[in-house]
């Protein structure tokens, strides 16, 4: 058991300050344990979000010493022992209170995505899809919606970007739908015009912070950009589609 120093942001979007706390830390503790301990014994009204405490729900996203992390998966022993640990809210979203931010913008982006549209190629036993054909889709579907990628994306950090780009989380979701073997909707035009794939300039910051290690940039965003290019900027492909139609259902 060792006493460690913490500074936690207290306040709202307009006013706030870093408040100092001391807390005894024992073996195996994660940053979320510290927050809970401070909440129970020193600051009952310290606002924080959490649920599963095992890196599966993506609720406790904060910035720890300036880095976007899940508080439940950040062990105290990986942070430098004699340095004060600074816990602040995600920078890209408005602060509601303390380290809780308003992430409703993300839910609005999701709402704009054309939902899964099942193909009629169904059997009595359900869809027939080979494992190798769904591996990548499953890789995308590991996403726990912690929004660390959204927070890190410089397009979204710059507030005006929020009108133009849905962000890496939703590029990943779009990719998972577009690559689903049994989905028949077409979202490529939306990817370009509604969700703003062109805004991403592939700096890979999102991939670096993903706690699920999803290859957001390489596996999701770049392939989507390529499909947009094929559709809208490749004259041979455009002619091909004119002749043979563009729906997945008919071309595949």
């Amino acid at each position: 058991m060792k006493e460690r120093d913490f500074k936690i942001y207290r306040g709202d979007d307009e006013r706030g300050e870093l408040v100092s706390y001391k807390c005894n830390v024992s073996e195996g503790m994660v940053v979320l344990d510290v927050i809970h301990k401070i909440q129970a014994h020193q600051a009952n009204d310290l606002a924080c979000r959490w649920n599963c405490k095992a890196g599966k729900c993506g609720s406790c996203s904060v910035e720890i010493n300036g880095k976007p992390r899940l508080a439940c998966m950040t062990r105290m022993n990986e942070l430098e022992e004699d340095k004060t640990v600074v816990i602040t809210p995600l920078k890209s979203f408005p602060v509601l209170k303390d380290i809780v931010t308003d992430v409703s913008w993300n839910y609005e982006q999701n709402q704009k995505i054309k939902p899964f549209t099942p193909s009629k190629k169904d059997t009595e036993k359900g869809f027939v899809m080979m494992q190798k054909d769904v591996d990548r889709v499953q890789h995308f579907r590991k996403c726990i919606e912690c929004y660390l990628c959204q927070n890190m994306c410089h397009v979204i950090r710059d507030n005006e970007g929020k009108d133009k780009f849905a962000g890496p989380r939703y590029m990943t979701r779009l990719a998972s739908l577009e690559m689903h073997p049994m989905d028949k909707a077409d979202r490529i035009e939306d990817v370009k015009d509604v969700h703003g794939s062109g805004m991403c300039n592939i700096t890979r910051c999102c991939t670096e912070v993903c706690p699920e290690e999803i290859q957001i940039t390489d596996d999701a965003i770049i392939p989507l950009k390529e499909r947009v290019v094929d559709r809208f900027y490749d004259p041979i492909m455009m002619l091909f589609r004119k002749l043979f139609g563009k729906k997945k259902e008919t071309t595949s």
Partner: peptide, 19 residues
């Protein structure tokens, strides 16, 4: 369970491509 698959769930597959 099959309904959930129709709503977009992607279960692990058998060798024959079933759930």
């Amino acid at each position: 369970v099959r309904e959930l698959e129709h709503w977009g769930a992607v279960f692990d597959r058998t060798k024959d491509g079933l759930i």
